[in-house]
């Protein structure tokens, strides 16, 4: 069975893929449909959804178009989710690979380092980092990457540890392959599928983290984001609940879709496990 056929067998994954595609389309179409800045005041404040033509989701406390904010927010969420995950992988994969392959004191040292980062409460650390570095897309991406690489390192280490004594790896050592060849050609390719699955789930978590940071007022002040929209509307929740409701749904759908896709990838990449799970 082909990779996609296995993926599509999981109906949830297919739905997730569709939702995700729609959100990506939203991000791409945002500058076309709403070419003006989402920060611009365009109508009187507190319009409820559908109240005035052309403002499907109404306006916020400052008279900004909620629909425009939602579309532009998609771009920011996806960007921060993807880039911070990539950075976390760049930190976590080599660390985990080296710790798992060499073992011994190197492993001890690297794992203490990883444990240290795992002990620190993630979100609190992210807050402190962004607050002190000053909020910007770069500082947010860095902060999220710094708090989310430890699981990657642990996963890769565990995979390397179980594979490094596999007989084919020992055979490679015996025929004289160098350590770097063994790591890159014998072991790493066999750890890719769990890494891919973890990465897809990490994008989801990163999006949640970003929204929580901007909810607390730690978003980049130059870009519109879903978390900011909810945070800004928090004080008027009694009068205008929809201002918080729609961005929340947007976050929920994105994160849900990414999780569904992640599960589908897991099934497709590890067909044996998937059968066991059923």
């Amino acid at each position: 069975m082909s990779f996609f056929a296995r993926f599509a067998q999981n109906r949830g994954a297919l739905i997730g893929l569709i939702i995700l595609t729609m959100i990506i389309l939203m991000a791409i179409l945002a500058p076309l449909l709403y070419p003006e800045s989402p920060w611009r005041m365009v109508q009187r404040p507190f319009l409820s959804p559908m109240e005035v033509d052309g403002f499907v989701l109404g306006t916020d406390t400052m008279g900004r178009d909620v629909a425009a904010g939602l579309m532009h927010g998609a771009w920011v969420s996806l960007l921060i989710g993807l880039v911070s995950t990539a950075v976390a992988l760049i930190i976590g994969v080599p660390l985990g690979a080296i710790a798992g392959y060499y073992g011994g004191l190197i492993d001890d040292g690297l794992m203490r380092f990883t444990e240290f980062f795992q002990t620190i409460p993630n979100f609190a650390l992210a807050i402190v980092l962004v607050a002190i570095m000053q909020p910007s897309v770069t500082s947010i991406v860095l902060a999220i990457a710094i708090v989310s690489w430890p699981p990657v390192a642990r996963l890769v280490r565990a995979e390397f540890m179980s594979l490094r004594h596999r007989e084919y790896v020992e055979a490679a050592r015996l025929v004289g392959q160098t350590n770097s060849t063994i790591i890159l050609r014998q072991i790493l390719p066999n750890t890719l599928s769990p890494i891919i699955v973890l990465a897809s789930l990490m994008v989801a978590t990163a999006i949640l983290l970003e929204s929580a940071l901007s909810f607390l007022g730690l978003g980049d002040p130059n870009v519109m984001s879903w978390g900011y929209m909810i945070g800004a509307a928090r004080t008027v929740i009694r009068q205008a609940w929809w201002l918080s409701f729609f961005p929340g749904i947007a976050i929920l759908l994105t994160v849900l879709a990414l999780n569904l896709v992640g599960e589908g990838l897991d099934d497709a990449l590890n067909p044996k496990l998937a059968r066991q799970r059923q």
Binding site: A204, S211, A212, I230, I237, G248, L252, L256, N259, L260
Partner: peptide, 22 residues
Amino acid sequence: ALLFYATPLFWVALMAVVLFSV
């Protein structure tokens, strides 16, 4: 479980306020 897992914490809190308090 998946739904709860994907829902932003602060948003659930706000919606709970709207529903159960307001």
